[in-house]
Computed example of a mutant assay.
Amino acid sequence: MPDSNRGVLLGASAFLFWGFAALYWPLLSASEPSEVLAHRMVWALLAMAVILLVTRRGWGWMVPVLREPRRLLPVAVAAVVISLNWWGFIYSVSINETLQASLAYFINPLMSVLLGMVFFTERLRSLQWAAVALGTTAVVVMTIAYGATPWLSLLMATSFAAYGAVKKYVDLDGTQSLTVETLVMFLPALGFVVYLEASGSGTAFSVSAGHTALLVGGGFVTALPLLLFGMATRLIPLSVVGILQYIAPTLIFLIGWLIQGEEMPASRWAGFVLVWLALCVFVFDQFRTQRKARSTGASGVTKGEADPAQGRDGQPARQDGQPEQWDGPPERRGCPSDE
């Protein structure tokens, strides 16, 4: 399977997991969002340890990373910004603002596209621009329908878009990067959990065995989609990731409306329809581009259309469609695969 197709499949799977996660975190309503977040960080490291054990990846690669600030810094930044995103999502669903979480992830793809254009010189085709325009209109409509400045939505959207961008500078594969991210946050999170239990305000062992199991399971609910997302961002451009991200808010939107009973006025319906139109335009553009590529040869270049194998100003691109600008180790240069 080509890297581009594999990246789309991995990215779509990640966002399906994130969409259905809106049903998971409300099950932990007996705990404060900050406690759920801390447990999420602690048990995510356990989940990654299990993944490393199953895949037989070992731990020897970690020591050089921890000793090199240049390699560790972007991973640490990624860990911090994704933690902000986690807290925002847990808090929004815990106070029955699931639709605001949905709005966050409708805004987020637009921010990802913007970052891709500004920092990674990604270029959009005309139909991709049309899809972005429809998505922008949908976000405006849904923001007006919400009736107030959606601070939680903006926090989640900004932090997750930044996370996707920072991952582009991490010269580790998806499994390794996520393991270090969880390790960075492990000690602060564990310290907070210990403090809560010592002060008597923790709920890890005082509610029920099922509650404890759900807290532990949060690590695996966290690790799997992030692993898939990390692999996808290194195989496909951020502009493609940005469009795929509409899968998660669509599912979250339906969960908030159909299952949790939040209001669904006509203005929100309008935004929902516009988002699906954007997706239809994007899928049609992808299909048309692939068909042209098959008919014109391996280069896929047609008159008036940019060569996907080149970056801005004709610079050669990496396998994921990005201009060659990665300064990772020479043995990995030009091969940002997470296999």
Rank of each mutant, 00 (worst) to 15 (best):
T250W: 10
S201R: 13
V81T: 04
L127M: 15
G174L: 12
R318P: 02
L226N: 11
T149I: 14
T143I: 03
F192E: 04
P109T: 00
S126A: 14
A204N: 07
V166P: 11
A309D: 06
F106K: 01
D171W: 15
N108D: 02
I82D: 04
A14E: 08
V207A: 03
L277P: 09
G311A: 02
W25V: 02
G297F: 03
A38D: 03
P64R: 11
A145L: 05
G200R: 09
I51R: 07
T289A: 11
M62Q: 09
V166L: 09
L155S: 00
F15S: 08
P336E: 14
L52D: 05
D171M: 14
S239F: 10
Q315K: 14
M264N: 15
L115R: 03
R333A: 09
V50G: 08
V301N: 02
P74G: 09
R123A: 12
L215I: 01
L84R: 04
N5E: 13
G321D: 06
L134Y: 15
P316M: 06
V301M: 01
F89H: 00
V283L: 05
S34Y: 13
S112A: 10
P336R: 11
L238W: 02
V113C: 09
G218I: 02
L110W: 03
I95A: 07
F284K: 12
G304A: 01
E263I: 10
G60L: 05
F15Y: 15
R6V: 07
S299A: 12
V54C: 04
